[in-house]
Amino acid sequence: MSRTSRTGWAFAAPGLSLLVIVMGFPLAYAALMAMSSMTLRSFRLSPLVGLENFTRVLGDPLFWQATWLTVRYAVITVTGEFVIGLALAMMLQKVLRWKAVYFAILTIPMAMSPIAVALIWRMLLQPNLGVINQMLRGLGFDGVDWFGDPALAVATMAAVDIWQQTSFVVLLLAAGLASLPREPYEAAEVDGAGAVQQFFYITMPMLRPVAAIAVVIQLINEFRTYDLPYVLTRGGPGNATEVLSYFAYRRAFLGLSLNEGAAASWVLLMIVLALTVAFFWLLERRDGRSSG
């Protein structure tokens, strides 16, 4: 090992040690739990049972239903957050006065606890006495069964999620847009490129690294979504809103099987990791092709 390399490791050591303690230990312990016979009634790791808990979880049809729902939910919410977030960020870029005020207002949902957000929306969307249905009825429409209709429950939950999470995407993308150089736009204007062409051929390619970070962070967030189904629907009606994290919670705390809950959580972690790696791999491959 060269001297430079040793120095590098020496500087990184404190941070890495902290990471191992803060992140590595809980992950390792969860992995151990997933391979143990630990339940809330028998709080012991022994005897270790290997992959038995993983087999049981993966053999449950509800697990695959929850996984597929989680994937769909993440795609819907992240797409919604990105499209709306980008539109808002671009509008804010054009704003000259009161920009700070707009940003402050936009960050309010992000600053709120997801549980509080869920409770507020649960009240607003209450079918009989909620404000939104009262307004719809006042306008001559029928009230909508927002969370009681299996076909609508996921979409409503996703809408609440998008309402809260979009402000984070706005902040990231607005920062990215503000850092873009002006010269390519000036050159494009001289060449006669319109706003749409500038957006697709200048803004989006240059914004791609920031956009990728925003998408990955939100993808991870959405895969972990737990608070909203817990407060809004408890996974129902039927299994219509039972996402993977809620499935893991049910196994651990209602089924008292901490080991199976840990196994489900590890599978969730693996899926998120795989998606993240795949996303960055695709991005790098595309960048490589563009530059080549």
């Binding site: 009989n128 006495l129 927002w146 969370f147």
Partner: peptide, 21 residues
């Protein structure tokens, strides 16, 4: 049942009953 009964809990039914609905 009331609209939204599939997602209603004890508090929801109490409120509807209390409201005379």
């Amino acid at each position: 049942a009331q609209q939204g009964a599939l997602n209603a809990n004890l508090d929801d039914t109490r409120r509807i009953m209390c409201a005379g609905e």
